[in-house]
C-alpha cells in the first residue's frame, strides 16, 4: 500500500459494497431508486468530464491516481461489474416467468391429475 491509498480504499470499498449486494437479498423501491440516482450522477459526471477534462485529472490527483484516464478506467470497472450483476439478476427474473409459463403449458397438456390418479390406482 502506501501511495495511492485513497483510491485503493475507495475501490475496495466499492467492490465490497458490490459483494454485499450480491449476498444480501435486495428488493423494494429504495435499492432501485438508489441505482437510478447513481446512474444519473454518473451521467452528470460524464458530461462534466467531457466539458472540463481537467476536472478529472484534478479529482484523480486528489485521490492519489496519476492521470484522469486511469481514474476513468477504475470507475468503468466498478460500473461494469455492478451492471453485470444487475443484468444477471434481471435475467434470472425473466427465467422465472418463462418457467412459470412452461410449467403451465406442461400441466395443461397432461392428463388431469385426478383422472390419472384414478386410472393408475385401478390399472395395477
Amino acid at each position: 500500500m502506501g501511495d495511492q491509498i485513497v483510491i485503493k480504499v475507495v475501490l475496495i470499498a466499492a467492490l465490497i459494497v458490490l459483494m454485499a449486494i450480491l449476498l444480501v437479498p435486495r428488493k423494494g423501491a429504495r435499492p432501485l431508486a438508489i441505482r437510478r440516482l447513481t446512474y444519473l450522477l454518473l451521467l452528470v459526471a460524464a458530461i462534466a468530464a467531457v466539458i472540463y477534462p481537467s476536472w478529472l485529472t484534478w479529482l484523480a490527483a486528489l485521490v492519489g491516481v496519476g492521470r484522469g484516464t486511469d481514474l476513468l478506467l477504475y470507475g468503468l470497472v466498478v460500473v461494469f461489474i455492478s451492471h453485470s450483476m444487475t443484468s444477471k439478476s434481471r435475467h434470472a427474473e425473466s427465467d422465472r416467468r418463462f418457467t412459470a409459463l412452461a410449467r403451465r403449458i406442461a400441466i395443461d397438456d397432461a392428463e388431469p391429475a385426478a383422472e390419472a390418479g384414478r386410472r393408475l390406482a385401478e390399472s395395477q
Partner: peptide, 29 residues
C-alpha cells in the same frame, strides 16, 4: 405405466420437481 408431464423446453431438475409437485396437487386424493 407412469403419467408423463412434458416440459416444452429443458428447464432443469429443480423446475421438473416443482412441476411434478404442482401437478400432483391437482389430485384431491
Amino acid at each position: 405405466g407412469a403419467v408423463v408431464v412434458t416440459h416444452p423446453v429443458n428447464l432443469g431438475q429443480g423446475a421438473a420437481l416443482q412441476t411434478g409437485i404442482s401437478y400432483v396437487l391437482g389430485d384431491p386424493e
